[in-house]
Design a binder for these strands. Structure first.
Length: 701
DNA sequence: TGGAGTGCCCAA
DNA sequence: TGGGCACTCCAG
């Protein structure tokens, strides 16, 4: 039906002309909107991670939202037809955009979560990793929790931190440059340091002391640790040294409300010391005076989401942009930290040799083939060389616990050529071979741990021998065997399938732990046995040596000093550089040698390297599109292990390949820019086949 | 998740 | 030939 009753033709009257189409009473599309009087333009970072749209977009701010749309606020805007989230980067009164601006649709919250400083940091990180700002913002900003935001602020803002007394921070006196570093913090100087903690050092307390010196100087501090365990330890130390009211512990596993609550406390300036795992590198501490990363060799510091930044590098960038001091700390030193020292950008903070000797345990290396292994039947049963066996027995006799470090389950069991020790690899994909578990009676054939293909008729590619031997024994089995070897002693396990123990008491016990899961022993272990070192060192990764050294030192650091009888036995050939470093307790020396070796081979961090992963055609396209620096060296592509998942390519089972691009460090920035630009061009061309870009990957090989 | 532009189909 | 409709593309 059309028209209204009054339109109907009257009987006997000629039909009137058809009525004009009714003027639709157009309800105003939007309630009458006027632009804000001052700064009506909001520059918005939209949450769209397409590389060709990685730039701010301008929106017109209606008066109604003028007050709410503060810089840093979360907003919703219409973008390409749909509503997307975004953040106000800036408010201005002009725009470069030539078309009509869309209205800012909604201010989700006026909480200024993205400060200009944080936005700058995120932009820098995005550029460095050839990623998008949107991706980095997702890493840096926790999801909002509306109820938490409305909670009243904790009533008393933190008062000033008491200036440390003359005795405070004296733990740093064991390091010649330690006190100077703390003075720099107190004096607002942007000192950069690389610290190697002494064996047995209460590192958490030292870091808390450094934080206190910073807070006492009215600056904030950020400390990033690899995992929850270290965070708990650090948190306890910070509460004690700095005071609970200043500390916010940020961890991923808190739950959305608590996570946002603590993050807000930092953002609002209520807490000036943010500690946490990798995402805490972005913690919005105001006016930061100190940034710390502990144990930067732990690969937990690498964010697994695009663009895969490393907490150390985030903090280095932040130190540059904020003028804060930086401390890269650990028991051992990474090759990356060595670069900082060698370039003169950071000062080493290390103890004198004499101090090291007072604190370090006595380290003995013993080759696996050592004849002693075969002579002692008990030791042989436990696959533990007799020197190690004796060290354990002596420690137990002195009523002290013994730590046994066995490689993580994931690496086991590994096998190698029985004749020349070349690690056995799959002939198809070059993945490591292992023996599948659960076949006690009927041994299964060696099988590739990457592609799962059985290796029948294996022959060593180096020496042609068909014989294989296990180079490592699983944690559970080692524990079992040691229990048999020391029947009256308690055997406890930590990690590798068992619950991770935080601490053990001073009573005699054998503690079998996987790397990273070693409990701290009250008073220190009497001895530590580091098993299967050869297997760790023989791993084909770039960081095999660095990683092995890191694990060995971490375990050995829990042992009593040599003057108190502490002993470490490492089962590995004593002429290996990694073993030498442990025997001499020289982590810095090892880092130097490692960096030299990588310089020789043209591997990171001596060079900047990008790993490009993707389906072959897409990879080729990206490399051809990119205006790579002249000095760029393109390697590959090589096939990635089957089953490698590329983000955004869930459906596709195409083989994935990896191309490596390396450049001299000074043009690393150009490499990242060229790759980001190529991604952007591909995006604009609607090339949907993704290529993942990893800059300075933890393991490029 | 909206609006504009494009191209195809079918009725006149 | 042109209007209607479905589909794609753009991105403030």
């Amino acid at each position: 039906m059309s028209g209204s009753p009054g339109d109907e033709a009257l009987p006997g009257m000629p039909s009137p002309p058809p009525p004009p189409p009714p003027v639709v009473a157009r309800t105003p599309k939007h309630n009458e909107r006027l632009p804000a009087e001052r700064n009506p333009v909001a520059s918005v970072a939209v949450d769209v991670s397409l590389p060709h749209l990685d730039r701010p977009f301008d929106y017109r701010v209606p008066v109604q939202l003028d007050e709410a749309a503060v810089v840093g606020a979360r907003v919703r805007v219409r973008f390409a037809g749909r509503m997307v989230d975004g953040y106000v980067l800036d408010r201005t009164d002009t725009t470069e955009h030539e078309g009509r601006l869309q209205w800012l649709d909604k201010v989700v919250s006026s909480e200024p979560v993205l400060s200009p400083e944080l936005a700058t940091l995120c932009r820098t990180v995005a550029d460095r990793y050839a990623g998008t700002l949107a991706d980095v913002l997702r890493l840096a900003l926790p999801p909002r929790h509306a109820r938490v935001e409305k909670e009243p602020l904790p009533d008393a803002g933190p008062g000033p931190v008491a200036v440390p007394g003359p005795d405070a921070g004296s733990g740093w006196a064991a390091y010649p440059r330690g006190p100077a570093f703390l003075e720099a913090l107190a004096g607002h100087r942007p000192a950069h340091a690389v610290w190697q903690a002494l064996p047995g050092e209460d590192w958490a307390r030292r870091l808390a002391e450094a934080a206190r010196a910073t807070l006492a100087a009215d600056r904030g501090a950020v400390i990033v640790v690899p995992d929850r365990r270290d965070l708990d330890r650090l948190h306890a130390a910070c509460v004690e040294v700095v005071g609970d009211e200043h500390v916010a512990a940020l961890a991923a596993d808190l739950g959305p409300a608590e996570r946002y609550r603590r993050w807000l406390a930092v953002s609002r300036g209520r807490k000036r010391l943010a500690i946490g795992t990798r995402a805490a590198a972005f913690a919005p501490v105001r006016d930061p005076g100190l940034l710390v990363v502990w144990d930067d060799g732990d690969d937990s510091h690498t964010e697994p989401r695009a663009p895969y930044p490393h907490a150390r590098d985030v903090l280095i960038a932040r130190a540059h942009t904020s003028g804060a001091a930086l401390l890269v700390a650990g028991i051992t030193r990474t090759a990356e930290a060595e670069v900082l020292v060698r370039s003169g950008w950071a000062h080493p903070v290390v103890a004198e040799r004499a101090t090291v000797r007072e604190h370090a345990p006595r380290v003995t290396a013993i080759g696996e083939d050592d004849r002693q292994l075969l002579r002692d039947p008990t030791a042989r049963a436990a696959r533990v060389p007799s020197v190690a066996f004796e060290a354990a027995r002596a420690a137990l006799a002195a009523a002290r616990p013994v730590l046994v470090q066995v490689p993580r389950r994931g690496y086991l069991p590994a096998i190698a050529c029985a004749q020349c020790r070349e690690p056995a690899r799959c002939r198809h994909c070059h993945g490591p071979l292992g023996i599948p578990a659960g076949t006690e009676d009927v041994p299964a054939p060696p099988t590739c741990r990457w592609c799962g293909r059985p290796a029948t008729n294996y022959r060593c590619p180096a020496c042609a021998s068909p014989r294989l031997r296990a180079t490592a024994v699983g944690a559970g089995r080692t524990a079992e065997e040691l229990g048999r070897a020391f029947p009256q002693t308690v055997v406890r396990s930590s990690g590798g399938g068992s619950t991770i123990l935080e601490t053990v008491d001073a009573a005699p016990a054998i503690v079998v732990a996987t790397p990273g899961a070693e409990p701290v022993a009250d008073g220190g272990y009497g001895a530590a046995l580091l098993l299967d070192g050869a297997a760790l060192l023989a791993r084909p990764e770039l960081r095999a040596a660095e990683e092995t050294v890191r694990r060995w030192f971490a375990a050995a650091s829990l042992v009593r000093p040599a003057p108190d009888g502490g002993r470490v036995v490492v089962v590995a050939e004593s002429n290996l550089p990694a073993v030498q470093a442990l025997v001499r307790w020289d982590p810095a020396g090892h880092a130097g040698a490692e960096l030299d070796a990588r310089t020789e081979l043209g591997l990171p961090p001596a060079v900047r390297m990008a790993a490009l992963d993707g389906e072959p055609a897409a990879l080729r396209d990206l490399v051809e599109t990119a205006h790579l620096p002249d000095a760029a060296d393109v390697l590959g592509p090589v096939e990635l292990p089957p089953g490698t998942r590329l983000p955004g390519a869930e459906e596709r089972t195409e083989r994935a390949e990896r191309t490596l691009v390396r450049v001299p460090r000074p043009v690393g920035r150009d490499l990242a820019r060229a790759l980001a630009q190529a991604q952007s061009i591909r995006g604009a061309r609607r090339e949907r086949e993704p290529v993942r870009i990893l800059l300075d990957p933890h393991d490029p090989l």
